[in-house]
Computed example of a mutant assay.
Amino acid sequence: MAFLDVEQGKRVYYEHFRGDNTPVVLVHCWGGTTRLWNTVVSALLGAGHEVLTLDHRGCGESDKDFTDASIGAIASDVVTLVEKCGLVKPILNGWSLGGAVVMEAASRLGDNVGGVVLTGAATPRFTPTQDWPYGNDRQGSEDSLALMAQDRAAAMKAIADACFAKPVSADLSQWAWSQFTQNGPRADQSLRELIDIDQRDLARQLDHPVLVIAGDQDAFIPFDGVEASIGLFKDARLFTMSGCGHAPHMEEPATYNAELLSYLQKVGGRTSVSA
């Protein structure tokens, strides 16, 4: 097991798989673990890619008692791990809240990014505002946080179940819930922050090719907002997974992985929009 020592001796769990092809960094959803990327990791390794995954602060195998478990702090862990592992122009793939994390990490890494993949991503905004009518009702997030304070197991079960729009096996549903049960109360900090975070300027400034993969039945990220976000980027393409919800890589892994690998093949030698 590998750990990154960060804030006052606290540790972040990560896995670094060597490979000869384009490196890929996988950043999981709020409250989950790197295990939720298992089918994606297998596909990437099978295609010879270098892969880096991590558990957010407060989640999975990472320490639970962080003082700072914000989106910015998780992004700083991504940046540090990219540098520590010597990744050259990696593709950053963020799922859900992980999308907000990789947007921040990409801005900090600058030229050392090959591209960005946003999977059911909670960016550029998670909730509506006056000039952005898209997103989730902020009250839903407040209600989830309130339920966590009363019955965390039930809250995690509701979140895990809501990830799927297509029928999945009882085993997969139960297993996904088991991953969400491994987070601690400090992880709630990043979810609270997500309610008001605005990354539209980061989207406009991003100089790398973006692949947006989204299920059109996502219960967390309304699809009209996903469509609207494409116009913010200099170079972005939307791949719609029809009938899928918030976890398209688990609902239709073969389709998801084929699209991801195709993107990696196209951008592997590309470093920026102007290249």
Rank of each mutant, 00 (worst) to 15 (best):
A176G: 10
D143S: 14
P222V: 00
L232E: 00
V117N: 04
S274A: 14
L147A: 06
W177F: 15
Q8A: 14
A2V: 02
M250F: 12
T33H: 09
N38V: 11
V267T: 13
V82P: 07
Y256N: 08
K157M: 14
V24W: 11
E251A: 07
L109W: 04
V12S: 01
V24F: 10
G99S: 05
P167L: 07
V226C: 01
A43T: 05
V6L: 13
F220L: 12
E193Q: 14
P128R: 12
N257H: 09
R57W: 01
T255Y: 10
Q182A: 14
F220A: 12
N38H: 15
I74N: 13
R57T: 01
M156R: 15
Q199M: 13
H208P: 00
G225S: 04
T39W: 11
G86L: 01
D171M: 11
K10G: 03
G60H: 02
T271H: 15
A146E: 14
W132A: 05
F126S: 09
R152V: 12
F223M: 00
N183M: 15
G225A: 02
N38D: 15
E61D: 14
P222Q: 00
V101A: 03
A254S: 13
T22P: 08
I197C: 11
W37L: 01
A47E: 15
V117P: 06
